[in-house]
Design a protein around this nucleic acid. Structure first.
Lengths: 318, 318
DNA sequence: TTGTAGGCGTTATCAA
DNA sequence: TTGATAACGCCTACAA
């Protein structure tokens, strides 16, 4: 293990000069700087994280609170975790997973929180270290999320461009910002085209959407596209349509939202609004580290554009 | 932040005594011990991890190498990661995810490795800190894994008990210990019952198993159960049988292995050998921490029993 | 612009 | 059995 002192000796300067080259390079003459850099390279110097943490009163640990019931079958979390972890690793930060509420608070430099509900607001606000949320919120928390409105805009525009004459939105009946945003994207696009809107909402289970389609089958007009707020719902719609041997994608189109759930087994494969979950994890981590570096200053919000992943559940005439 | 010194003052002893109460309690008189414990409790003392790490030349970081292509749609990894992370957290260890080979070695106290291939053997052996593998291996690495042989034993015994007269094993054509073990469990059980064995092997893709069944359909006798080395393969078998409107589970039974993949969408739901992935993650972490504490001493192997999750793809007459 | 001294919280070592 | 001292590697504060 080469230390600051080793580098200092090699470069014929004091430890402090080396330290400054790392932390306040503007205070050091260019001449010394380069010779210090050379010494660092030659000795393959790596700062000792523990020592730095000790003197800075840091832990180099970030806690990830997953407050919702984590469905480990959702690749969602794995992608998120991978993104966060990768980015934290670069800065020598390590991740701790916390899935029990009110547990294991403290002993870290910052928090990433996903699945916050209203009831969590209070204690989250009390946390003494920087917090970044994963997921839209209308409170004052900094956050990263998919641009949900853009996602359903893209989906709806695509449906219309493919010539579907009715576009129906199948939403999730929760009062959460992400859902409002997704509905807004649909509404805005339909209104822009001066088309009538129709929104149905269900809990996020495929069988509910399936039952709905079954019950409505006789009323459904061909040339309809269903823009759904989740892949689960889209999957349910598709299954129901298949039961009636409906012609997907010619008579009916189905578009999901998520780009993860079960898309490998849906037949035909779902066209879906793909969320950049991994990148969102990266952004979350970056935002949090920036916030820590800037002593807790608000970092605002970061919304990443989803991509429309086109597959067999919609027409594709270009 | 209360420190050792604070506790020492409160208990009227030296810092060292407090330190010893924590690390070498046998060297301290009971009398002092209790008064130190009291002081610690009253002051809510928490050891400073960074300071400890510094003086012990530790990082408090464990790296998790995922060497295989990580299919983030497999809940497998999320369960594993959750288990590992939970256990490490208890001991104030943090986790770093590494998915690129040969990258990001060093700077940690130990490694958990999953998806090792033969070609990885060499560099893994060179690692300078304790290593624990996740997954059976016939080399000298310590590891945790499902008891694969027990798993297929349970599956085969169950199939026979349900009265299926033929039991065919659908394996994965890889030369990996886990596969050998799974085949062995099947073989042993069949031989014990003096029944003929039949093994087919495919790459682990559902469509291959599906095509096989389709091509063999005319030869298949009713009252056959397929014991598969993965849920993917089982899923393919089931899909093919459904194509022929075969009667599952009365004429044909299907048993998978994993308990994770897609089981939510298979119709009927698969009977499967459920691996305790979360617990295996916990065990892995424990084993590694023990190995670190004991200065790298071999820890042997740990095989956890799977459970047979019974569902609609097999008869269930009890 | 650079260097010196001291301390962050803990533990190993040695002396009492 | 207990305590004093030094050290781990780095950074802040101050001095030169």
């Amino acid at each position: 293990m080469t230390t600051l002192s080793d580098v200092a000796k090699k470069a014929n300067v004091s430890k402090m000069t080396v330290s400054r080259v790392i932390n306040h390079p503007e205070q050091v003459r260019d001449e010394l700087k380069t010779s210090v850099f050379n010494a660092m390279r030659e000795l393959d110097y790596r700062p000792n994280v523990a020592a730095k943490a000790l003197v800075n009163n840091r832990t180099q640990i970030i806690k990830l609170f997953i407050l919702e019931d984590m469905d480990t079958t959702e690749p969602y979390y794995m992608n998120l975790l991978t993104g966060i972890s990768k980015e934290l690793g670069k800065e020598q930060y390590a991740l701790q997973l916390v899935t029990e509420h009110h547990f294991d608070i403290g002993g870290c430099d910052g928090y990433i929180v996903t699945g916050m509900r209203h009831s969590d607001y209070e204690w989250l606000q009390r946390l003494e270290r920087p917090v970044v949320l994963f997921g839209e919120n209308r409170l004052e928390f900094d956050y990263c999320d998919t641009d949900n409105t853009l996602g359903t805009k893209m989906a709806t525009e695509y449906a219309l461009k493919q010539g579907y004459q009715q576009v129906i939105f199948i939403g999730i009946n929760v009062k959460e910002p992400f859902e409002y945003s997704r509905e807004a994207g649909y509404m805005m696009t339909m209104q822009k085209h001066q088309l009538p809107t129709e929104i149905k909402r269900f809990s996020n289970h495929s069988h509910l959407a399936m039952e709905y389609i079954q019950s409505q089958w006789s009323q459904l007009k061909p040339n309809t596209c269903f823009v759904c707020a989740s892949d689960r719902l889209a999957f349910g719609v598709e299954k129901a349509l298949n039961l009636f041997n409906a012609d997907i994608p010619n008579d009916f189109g189905v578009i999901g939202f998520d780009g993860v759930f079960l898309n490998q087994v849906a037949t035909p494969k779902l066209t879906t609004v793909q969320q950049p979950i991994f990148e969102l994890g990266v952004q979350c981590a970056r935002m949090l580290l920036a916030k820590i570096a800037k002593d807790g200053q608000p970092q605002g919000i970061e919304q990443l554009a989803p991509t429309l992943s086109i597959a067999g559940s919609t027409r594709n005439d270009n």
